[in-house]
Design a protein around this nucleic acid. Structure first.
Lengths: 235, 235
DNA sequence: CTCGCTCATTGATAACATCATTGCGCGGTG
DNA sequence: CACCGCGCAATGATGTTATCAATGAGCGAG
């Protein structure tokens, strides 16, 4: 894919705004953007349109491009989420997203238990087995364990039969990855987490929706507990 | 607000794509769009960029603008949701969204019970009281009852203290409204629904998170049951 | 069958016209 | 003299058009 010119501009501005470096009410102009990034007004305009579509800015004659307050942002858009997970609000964003996971993943697991294909059920069981092996070997904070963890949650979300849950699969993947790379992951995972992952896999494999939901709720509760312990609420 | 020129173009194309009128793989050209809507290439391009940002299309030199398969769409974006709630996939979209509500609203209610302001707690109790009055008077399918219903759910989502839940408040409002206007609302609401709404309000008022969560789960279960009865699953 | 050419179509820039918004200054008034 | 309202001009977005560069899909030649 050719690196489209407005891409870097959009990215830079998006980061600045979501990081709070450009606070609500701050004003930009197309000429200013064009001059700073060395691009034409047209490119600056396209980046601005995208930002407008994300609810980050509003533009009007004479006023230029004004940054909107954060409650106007499309906080569910993957781009916005990615930007915020990079900036200073990382911990807070991780907490919000984990809360969303807490709401969605148990139900998604229940749906998957009802609708997953045989291939998916098999893969889940295999993943859970490997996770236990790695976890008991002290590789609970390694990349391989992380990949399995992500794969399992992604499989569950995408097999839920609900496109809205599927759309959240990438977000969940980023959150899981963020937790590991923030160093919140113990080298030896809590046995309760390994048990719960196995329980989810076998519940989905046998089509037991209630058990899958309950086991997944245990997983997410543990995640949230670890997060709170590592970074106490600052609200 | 001045009717920006690319707005109608974006809207029309978005509807066509989400409605399936332009299937995945269909190709457009900027000149074609410009000619059809009587706008310049620049405006057509801006509309296209927005569509690209929503994951509906991809564009490249020589290939024109190609419609992407639906699993690339930003199905959580409010614009996409609104379009799909209008088109032929309305019932299916309503089911998906209700499932999302089922996941999110109970937890949001629990959070609200922990963090809502005194003013919000009072308003919730008042709303529940009015809802019962209207419901028992046979106004359960009226606009006034609908407005109260929406207001209550919106208040809860926005008082959850989680911006991601807040962002879903509009979506929930549209879903509730859609249910009424699809004629799935009984003139006399189920007494269980009125009871549950009152239970949520009083649980939040007293700060009982568990009770709020449980009562909200009852509400959403009832909603989903009504939806399934009115439009049996076609998956 | 494969390589390479061609041309349609997007990507990007520039110059220009238009128009809404806003802030400032002018004049009138209490 | 202070204050308020009105209109005007500066500003910057919106939209159009023209032009060139880049690219890649399809086709034709070898």
């Amino acid at each position: 894919m050719p690196p489209v010119l407005h891409g870097p501009v959009l990215d830079a501005l998006g980061r600045r705004i979501t990081a709070g470096e450009l606070p609500a009410g701050a004003a930009l102009t197309l000429d200013g953007i064009g001059a700073e990034f060395g691009v034409s007004r047209t490119v600056a305009r396209e980046a601005m349109r995208l930002l407008e579509g994300l609810g980050l800015v509003r533009s009007g004659p004479r006023v230029g491009i004004v940054v909107l307050p954060h409650d106007a942002w499309n906080v569910l858009d993957p781009k916005v989420i990615a930007w915020r997970l990079d900036g200073p609000g990382r911990a807070s964003q991780l907490r919000s997203l984990t809360e969303l996971r807490q709401a969605v993943e148990p139900l998604a697991a229940a749906c998957a238990a009802r609708g997953a294909t045989a291939a998916v059920r098999d893969e889940l069981v295999g993943i859970a087995r490997q996770m236990r092996k790695l976890g008991e070997a002290g590789e609970g904070d390694g990349e391989e364990f992380l990949a399995l963890d992500i794969r399992m949650h992604e499989l569950l979300m995408r097999s839920s039969g609900n496109e809205l849950f599927s759309a959240l699969a990438d977000v969940v993947a980023v959150v899981i990855s963020g937790r590991t790379h923030l160093g919140l992951m113990p080298a030896y995972p809590e046995p309760v987490a390994l048990d719960a992952h196995e329980a989810v896999a076998s519940a989905v494999a046998t089509g037991d929706a209630d058990a899958a939901e309950e086991a997944m709720a245990r997983i997410v509760r543990e995640v949230r507990g670890a997060l709170d312990a590592g970074a106490p609420p600052t609200r």
